[in-house]
């Protein structure tokens, strides 16, 4: 509608003409510190727990499966199609449903399940953040609708922080329509500044590092 009108007003305001060149943009500021895997895992777990998340360092696939099973505790769960989940045998735990590719079906289950289980494309050590790219393997709603959320992260997926993530993925839009960074459980402090967890998203987060 007003596409050209607005652009014209912007150019007039700035004293620029259409297709006028652009001065050099200040370089991006990305600092990636040296940090070994062990330190990354420690920092990541520390940060998640500081945000009232739970972490578990699994020694084996079986250990990860056992932990997930204890969290689910006989309730219903929906798992994503991440390979790591089937590799750990989590998708075959009792009560866990997986393998959805249909949006409506997935949505219905997500809104009734007690737990959502996903993998993570990356995790950020310095903030305790999970990074999920929407794909055939990961749906958006699994980490969002069920009140309890379990994420299984492979240790080699741990990055130092946001700067490293954006170094590896300079344009996340090329890979996915949705990349989300998840840092701790859903929270609000909108009434009298009192912290309440689990307002819209999950109030309980468990991260298993494999």
């Amino acid at each position: 509608m007003s596409h050209e009108t607005v652009l014209h007003k912007v150019r007039t305001a700035l004293g620029r003409t259409a297709a006028q060149s652009v001065e050099a943009l200040p370089p991006a500021r990305l600092l990636v510190p040296e940090m070994d895997v062990e330190a990354r895992i420690r920092s990541f777990c520390e940060r998640v727990e500081a945000l009232a998340g739970k972490t578990h360092r699994a020694h084996s696939a079986q250990d990860a499966r056992d932990y997930a099973s204890r969290v689910i505790a006989g309730r219903t769960a929906i798992a994503s199609n991440a390979t790591i989940l089937s590799e750990c045998g989590i998708t075959s735990l009792p009560g866990v449903q997986a393998g959805f590719t249909d949006r409506d079906e997935l949505r219905a289950l997500c809104s009734s399940a007690a737990c959502g289980i996903t993998g993570a494309d990356y995790a950020l050590a310095d903030t305790g953040t999970l990074v999920l790219l929407s794909s055939l393997h990961e749906a958006r709603l699994i980490s969002l609708l069920p009140p309890v959320y379990i994420a299984v992260v492979e240790r080699n997926r741990l990055l130092t922080g946001l700067d490293e993530l954006l170094t590896i993925l300079p344009r996340p839009a090329e890979q996915t329509s949705s990349m989300v960074l998840i840092t701790g459980p859903s929270r609000t402090a909108d009434i009298e500044q009192i912290l309440v967890r689990g307002v819209h998203g999950p109030g309980e987060i468990h991260v298993v590092v494999v």
Binding site: T127, P172, A173, S178, V180, L181, T183, R187, G201
Partner: peptide
């Protein structure tokens, strides 16, 4: 907060 709980990058 170092990062808020959710940061969404939405592209199309």
């Amino acid at each position: 907060q170092r990062l808020t709980v959710y940061t969404s990058f939405l592209s199309g």
